[in-house]
Amino acid sequence: MGTDETTASHLQELRRGTVVLGCLMRLRTPDYGYALLESLNGIGITVDANTLYPLLRRLEKQGLLTSEWNTDEARPRKFYSTSPAGDRLAAELTADWHRIDQALTRLTTGDER
Protein backbone atom coordinates (compact mmCIF):
# COMPACT_ATOMS: atom_id res chain seq x y z
CA MET A 1 0.00 0.00 0.00
CA GLY A 2 2.87 2.35 0.88
CA THR A 3 4.63 1.98 -2.46
CA ASP A 4 1.44 2.44 -4.46
CA GLU A 5 0.64 5.66 -2.61
CA THR A 6 4.19 6.94 -3.05
CA THR A 7 4.09 6.15 -6.77
CA ALA A 8 0.71 7.82 -7.15
CA SER A 9 1.83 10.99 -5.40
CA HIS A 10 5.03 11.25 -7.48
CA LEU A 11 3.10 10.69 -10.70
CA GLN A 12 0.64 13.40 -9.67
CA GLU A 13 3.50 15.79 -8.96
CA LEU A 14 5.16 15.04 -12.29
CA ARG A 15 1.92 15.66 -14.19
CA ARG A 16 0.86 18.81 -12.38
CA GLY A 17 2.67 21.22 -14.70
CA THR A 18 1.71 19.33 -17.82
CA VAL A 19 -1.98 19.99 -17.14
CA VAL A 20 -1.33 23.75 -17.40
CA LEU A 21 0.58 23.26 -20.63
CA GLY A 22 -2.13 20.95 -21.97
CA CYS A 23 -4.85 23.55 -21.22
CA LEU A 24 -2.93 26.41 -22.84
CA MET A 25 -2.31 24.40 -26.02
CA ARG A 26 -5.78 22.84 -26.22
CA LEU A 27 -7.58 26.16 -25.65
CA ARG A 28 -6.13 27.81 -28.73
CA THR A 29 -9.57 26.79 -29.95
CA PRO A 30 -12.12 28.05 -27.36
CA ASP A 31 -13.92 25.44 -25.30
CA TYR A 32 -15.81 25.01 -22.02
CA GLY A 33 -14.82 23.18 -18.84
CA TYR A 34 -16.42 19.80 -19.29
CA ALA A 35 -15.44 19.41 -22.96
CA LEU A 36 -11.87 20.33 -22.08
CA LEU A 37 -11.86 17.78 -19.24
CA GLU A 38 -13.05 15.05 -21.60
CA SER A 39 -10.63 15.86 -24.37
CA LEU A 40 -7.58 16.16 -22.10
CA ASN A 41 -8.36 12.81 -20.48
CA GLY A 42 -9.11 11.41 -23.96
CA ILE A 43 -5.59 12.19 -25.20
CA GLY A 44 -3.99 10.85 -22.03
CA ILE A 45 -3.44 13.98 -19.90
CA THR A 46 -5.14 12.74 -16.73
CA VAL A 47 -6.82 15.45 -14.68
CA ASP A 48 -9.92 15.46 -12.49
CA ALA A 49 -12.68 18.04 -12.38
CA ASN A 50 -11.75 19.25 -8.87
CA THR A 51 -8.33 20.24 -10.20
CA LEU A 52 -9.29 21.51 -13.65
CA TYR A 53 -12.11 23.95 -12.85
CA PRO A 54 -10.20 25.95 -10.19
CA LEU A 55 -7.12 25.84 -12.46
CA LEU A 56 -9.04 27.46 -15.32
CA ARG A 57 -10.14 30.26 -13.02
CA ARG A 58 -6.58 30.79 -11.78
CA LEU A 59 -5.13 30.89 -15.32
CA GLU A 60 -7.79 33.43 -16.27
CA LYS A 61 -6.92 35.57 -13.26
CA GLN A 62 -3.26 35.48 -14.34
CA GLY A 63 -4.26 36.71 -17.80
CA LEU A 64 -3.21 33.49 -19.54
CA LEU A 65 -6.78 32.63 -20.55
CA THR A 66 -9.72 34.78 -21.55
CA SER A 67 -13.33 33.74 -21.12
CA GLU A 68 -16.70 34.47 -22.62
CA TRP A 69 -20.17 33.24 -21.72
CA ASN A 70 -21.98 31.43 -24.49
CA THR A 71 -25.74 31.59 -24.03
CA ASP A 72 -26.81 30.07 -27.32
CA GLU A 73 -27.88 26.81 -25.71
CA ALA A 74 -30.22 26.11 -22.81
CA ARG A 75 -27.28 25.85 -20.40
CA PRO A 76 -25.00 28.93 -20.40
CA ARG A 77 -21.39 27.84 -20.68
CA LYS A 78 -18.15 29.70 -20.04
CA PHE A 79 -15.82 29.31 -23.01
CA TYR A 80 -12.13 29.75 -22.29
CA SER A 81 -9.45 30.52 -24.87
CA THR A 82 -5.70 31.04 -24.64
CA SER A 83 -4.61 34.70 -24.58
CA PRO A 84 -1.44 36.00 -26.32
CA ALA A 85 0.32 35.90 -22.96
CA GLY A 86 -0.85 32.29 -22.53
CA ASP A 87 0.55 31.48 -25.98
CA ARG A 88 3.95 32.90 -25.07
CA LEU A 89 3.97 30.93 -21.81
CA ALA A 90 2.99 27.75 -23.66
CA ALA A 91 5.92 28.23 -26.06
CA GLU A 92 8.32 28.71 -23.17
CA LEU A 93 6.97 25.70 -21.26
CA THR A 94 7.20 23.55 -24.38
CA ALA A 95 10.83 24.54 -24.94
CA ASP A 96 11.63 23.68 -21.33
CA TRP A 97 9.76 20.41 -21.67
CA HIS A 98 12.01 19.46 -24.60
CA ARG A 99 15.14 20.40 -22.67
CA ILE A 100 14.05 18.17 -19.77
CA ASP A 101 13.23 15.38 -22.21
CA GLN A 102 16.68 15.63 -23.81
CA ALA A 103 18.38 15.65 -20.42
CA LEU A 104 16.46 12.57 -19.27
CA THR A 105 17.17 10.82 -22.57
CA ARG A 106 20.88 11.41 -22.06
CA LEU A 107 20.57 9.88 -18.60
CA THR A 108 18.74 6.77 -19.84
CA THR A 109 21.13 6.17 -22.74
CA GLY A 110 24.13 6.66 -20.44
CA ASP A 111 25.43 9.48 -22.62
CA GLU A 112 25.62 12.16 -19.93
CA ARG A 113 28.46 14.65 -20.04
Partner: peptide, 13 residues
Protein backbone atom coordinates in the same frame (compact mmCIF):
# COMPACT_ATOMS: atom_id res chain seq x y z
CA UNK B 1 -23.22 30.47 -13.05
CA UNK B 2 -20.00 28.48 -13.28
CA UNK B 3 -21.15 25.98 -10.68
CA UNK B 4 -24.50 25.44 -12.42
CA UNK B 5 -22.67 24.79 -15.68
CA UNK B 6 -20.29 22.34 -14.00
CA UNK B 7 -23.03 20.48 -12.10
CA UNK B 8 -25.30 20.36 -15.15
CA UNK B 9 -22.52 18.95 -17.37
CA UNK B 10 -21.55 16.40 -14.72
CA UNK B 11 -25.16 15.22 -14.34
CA UNK B 12 -25.62 14.98 -18.10
CA UNK B 13 -22.41 12.97 -18.44
Amino acid sequence: RELRERIGDAVDA
